[in-house]
Simulated assay, not measured.
Amino acid sequence: MDFDYMIQYAPLFVEAAGITLYIGLMGIAISLVLGLAMSIIRYHKIPILTEICGAYIELSRNTPLLVQLFFLYFGLPKLGIHISGEVCATIGLAFLGTSYMAEAFRSGLESIPFSQTESAEALGFTKVQIMRFIIIPQTFTVSIPPLCANVLFLIKETSVFSVCAVPDLMYVAKDLIGLYYKTDETLWMLVIAYLIILLPISIGASILERKLRYGRFGNSSAL
């Protein structure tokens, strides 16, 4: 194991990890917002929009991210639309992530007893107030486990961003292997970089899930 090589090129992995994490978090943030909106549309069964959301979810979840990125990066220029690799990666991750987040939120929404909505209506709450103060807070609590799992899944999916010429972790690793043939050392640095990114998120998600599960806010019997 050539440790001098690993020390010399570690800064490249640090820089690539920053790019990977930035694009990943941007895509995840967008997918959370759009996923919540989509789940609310399906929860209320809004005509036409519900069918569109259902079709989108099936399309997104049943096509690989790599194919979606190929379409964005190589297909759109054929239509005269040119966007950078970073933007392609963000859009692709958000496109995939929105469907997974929507399903996670939908499961949380459907777990809330309808009697709570009826009680709130009897007290004079509007539909917007019911969603804002009663349904959505509980939905987030119930949805924490699948949401955290989706976050980890989407960050791992960033490993295919190199097809868009994004200088992420995988891109740097492949470049270094091609230049110096230090496969073992490079792959070890790649594994360590992903562990540094993913392990804190995984531990934080476990702690958050545990606190909400046993806390009063996350206990449905206390509502």
Score class of each variant (00 low, 15 high):
Y43A: 09
I46L: 14
P47F: 03
V160S: 10
S31G: 08
L223Y: 11
I19P: 03
T50M: 10
A149M: 10
I196V: 14
L208W: 09
V33S: 07
S143Q: 01
A16D: 00
G80M: 04
S206I: 02
S31I: 04
S84T: 09
F3G: 11
G24N: 09
I144C: 10
L12M: 14
Y180H: 14
E15L: 12
Y194I: 00
Y194G: 01
K78N: 10
T158R: 07
T90S: 11
E157V: 09
I46E: 07
A89M: 07
E185Y: 08
N62I: 13
L179D: 03
V166R: 02
V128K: 11
L76Y: 11
A122P: 00
L49R: 02
M101F: 08
V166E: 03
I7N: 14
V160I: 15
F125Y: 11
I201T: 05
I197D: 03
K127C: 00
Q68I: 10
E86L: 13
A29M: 15
L187H: 10
F71R: 13
F13K: 11
T158F: 00
L36H: 07
P64K: 05
L169P: 05
Y181M: 12
D2I: 05
G215E: 10
D184I: 14
C88R: 12
Y171A: 09
L66M: 15
T117G: 13
I48G: 02
D168L: 02
S143R: 09
V14E: 08
R216P: 08
I135F: 02
I112P: 02
K78Q: 15
I112T: 10
I52F: 12
S39V: 07
L66I: 14
T98L: 03
F95I: 07
R42Q: 04
A94W: 02
V67N: 09
L49W: 08
R216D: 12
A165D: 03
M189C: 13
I192G: 09
L147K: 12
I83Q: 09
A55T: 11
V151G: 07
C148D: 00
G124I: 07
L195M: 15
D2C: 09
L123A: 12
M1F: 15
G24F: 00
A17G: 14
K182D: 04
Q129A: 13
P200K: 11
D4W: 06
E103M: 08
W188E: 01
E118H: 06
L123T: 06
S60R: 11
A89L: 04
L208G: 10
L32T: 09
G35S: 10
N62M: 12
E110S: 11
D4H: 13
E51L: 02
E103D: 13
W188H: 07
L96Q: 13
V166S: 06
T158V: 06
A165G: 06
E209N: 12
S31A: 15
L49T: 01
F114D: 05
E157R: 09
K156W: 09
S99H: 06
M101G: 08
F161I: 14
G85L: 05
P64M: 06
L179M: 12
V87Y: 01
T50W: 05
A16E: 07
T20D: 02
T63E: 01
A165Y: 00
A37H: 02
S206G: 12
E118M: 04
A122I: 07
L152P: 04
G124Q: 02
Y194E: 00
G108A: 10
R42W: 01
L223M: 13
A102L: 05
L198Q: 12
L25T: 13
C53W: 01
I203T: 12
